[in-house]
Simulated scan of single mutants.
Amino acid sequence: MTELSDDQKRDFEAAAFRRLVTHLRQRGDVQNIDLMNLAGFCRNCLSNWYREAADAEGVTLSKDAAREIIYGMPYAEWQALNQTEASDAKKAEFEAKRPKDH
Rank of each mutant, 00 (worst) to 15 (best):
M1Y: 14
M1P: 15
M1N: 11
T2Y: 11
L4P: 06
L4M: 07
S5V: 06
S5I: 11
S5K: 07
K9P: 03
R10K: 15
D11T: 14
D11L: 13
D11Y: 08
F12Q: 15
A14F: 09
A14R: 12
R18Y: 05
R19M: 02
V21W: 01
V21G: 09
R25E: 05
Q26S: 06
Q26E: 06
R27Q: 02
R27H: 02
Q31A: 11
Q31L: 13
A39E: 09
G40C: 00
C42E: 05
C42Y: 01
S47H: 00
S47L: 06
N48S: 03
E52M: 12
E52W: 05
A54H: 04
D55S: 14
E57G: 13
L61D: 01
K63Y: 06
A66Y: 00
R67S: 09
E68M: 07
I70F: 06
G72K: 08
G72Y: 05
G72H: 07
M73A: 13
M73L: 13
Y75F: 15
Y75D: 02
A76G: 08
Q79M: 14
Q79T: 14
L81R: 15
T84Q: 15
T84R: 15
T84Y: 07
E85N: 12
E85I: 15
A86F: 06
D88R: 03
D88F: 01
A89E: 15
A89R: 10
A92Y: 04
E95S: 08
E95C: 05
A96D: 09
A96E: 12
K97N: 10
K97W: 10
H102R: 15
